[in-house]
Design a binder for these strands. Structure first.
Lengths: 187, 187, 187, 187
DNA sequence: TATGAATGAGGGTTCATTCAT
DNA sequence: TATGAATGAACCCTCATTCAT
């Protein structure tokens, strides 16, 4: 039942947009009465939370899996593969991603998004630190920069219409990251 | 009159948040009747549009001024100065920026934001092209990457609480951009 | 407009009972939209408050007028006349009195009711005190007793179907009060 | 089972108030499913009825016991003792009395309350009649007056915060009743 | 032009009651 | 018998918008 409601919620979001995301509409889409929705969720916000959580968990899992596979490795190939994994993760449900990132107030997503960023940032900072420091520059700041830059570019590429093709984006992301991190420790 | 309403709209947004941004509240804050508001704006959205437009125009002006001053110049110092100008532009009205970027559905801002990005991107692409191409890589793609990365990082730094200090962010942004663009054409 | 809504509220209460006293029903009875109701009242409770306040103010005015006319006077005739005034006051809008006292949770009325009781009690206590005390008994306690007894009996007589006829009730109320207060100071 | 539900209903009333008195809440408090509740009670009202009935039966038993002990006796001491019994009866479950008399629409209690009043009234009328009539006044009317006055005063004293102390109330009730009835037949 | 009272569809939510299991 | 998930009508309230003045 929770499943039916969450699925309906996702459907309403994707097909009708966030403005149409009313409890009555979600319940109707689930073929359920409004009252039933409230047997499984304390309020409207909780329904959205589940949809959002599931989406971000999925994305986070994919990204972390890709990172995990390569812990300790280095070099442009690794960067490119990771960037590819990020793109793939974000593409796994482009329709929902579009609604979540274009229709919802960013505050609604901030929690999950930050959480994922922090996890990835720490992973990356550890790798950088392991590589012998950054020649006096802050490894944390570097990780912060890389995560934000890659996230923003990947998000835009996945959501926006025409742009560089996939290979080109990966090339550029790779150049961006290696060019940034290389001088000090990836040379 | 339009002025009074737009000013009130801004005030309501900043002081009470987007949730409180109702036509009645804006009209009241402007000391005007709801009916009057509809004599100058077709609907609520149009009022918000003007506030958003003005904000982005202001930011765009500042950024473009900084870029314009340095057309034709090159090197890390220019990159750093430009990044500093972007930070300063975004900081010029942090309160409004926060509401616009955290409370509004991003779609509401997309138009203005894209417009600015495109302008800056073209400027940058021209500079890069003028500098003798990118060794076979797409100058447009590079400009696209740089603009998005700098924008995302600057936005986050201005809006989020604790992070690297200003000098550090500028250092890292400079390193990011020069590291990315340097090998091919800024050496 | 407030008038129309309050009148409709009274009508709904009297004709359909407190259970039917919903904002939508009141608005409909007033020939007005639900939204209009909320331009004049902060919430449903406020509408009921006005109805209740008006009723009790009316009753209080009548009772206090009757008492005021006789301040300083004494004797069974005065008691009887006062009791008659109380009955008349309560009979002025028997239909509404019925709903208010039978359908509403007493807490809803407690405030107004207590306020009137206190006013009358103080008036009466002053009269009793002026009459030379109560022979060691508390004038306040006596006023408290008299007010509650008369109120309860009058209320019941007005609301309940068959009972003693009017003259008989007045006789008995007179006997009750004079018998209670007489030995000490009304002899 | 009925027992469990009724006990839970009482508990909900006392601990959470009448507003919280929903069938679901009562069922939950009874550790029973809502459906089960409807196997033993036709509707929500019936559950409340039983709670109310039990309360008033208890009060009625105590009052009637006190009266029964003294049938045929007379004098201020008897009046006082009876009044004391009424106070004690009402105090036996003050928490429930408070909810029932302050939160419920009085109509919900009217039946039980009237029934007790009638019983006591008849008892009292019989005593008065046995005492040689009322000198032309209606013994029924007198009983009606006494019952209502004592009931109202006792109820208020038990429920309301500060007031005369217990002894004083009993003194005044005694004075009220004897002063009223004495001249004619209790002299 | 400027008003502001009036609108009414729609919002989120509750809860007495039912019925398939 | 006992369950408890499911119901759905109705609740109170908001707010973008209109229109007679």
């Amino acid at each position: 039942m929770v499943e039916r409601i969450v699925a309906a919620a996702r459907r309403v979001l994707v097909e009708q947009g966030y403005d149409a995301f009313s409890t009555n509409r979600v319940a109707a889409a689930a073929g359920v009465s409004p009252g039933s929705l409230y047997q499984y969720f304390p309020d409207k916000s909780a329904v959205l939370d589940v949809v959002v959580d599931r989406y971000w968990d999925e994305v986070a899992d994919r990204v972390q899996a890709a990172l995990g596979d390569r812990v300790g490795q280095t070099g442009p190939a690794v960067v490119r593969a990771t960037a590819a994994a990020v793109l793939a993760a974000l593409e796994s449900d482009r329709e929902l991603l579009r609604v979540l990132h274009e229709d919802l107030p960013p505050r609604r997503l901030a929690g999950q998004r930050r959480a994922l960023e922090v996890r990835v940032r720490h992973l990356l900072a550890a790798v950088l630190a392991g590589r012998g420091g950054a020649g006096g520059r802050s490894v944390d700041a570097q990780a912060w920069v890389v995560v934000l830059a890659v996230e923003a570019i990947a998000l835009r590429w996945v959501l926006d219409g025409p742009g560089p093709d996939r290979g080109e984006v990966l090339d550029e992301l790779t150049a961006l990251v290696t060019g940034y991190l290389a001088p000090a420790q990836l040379g």
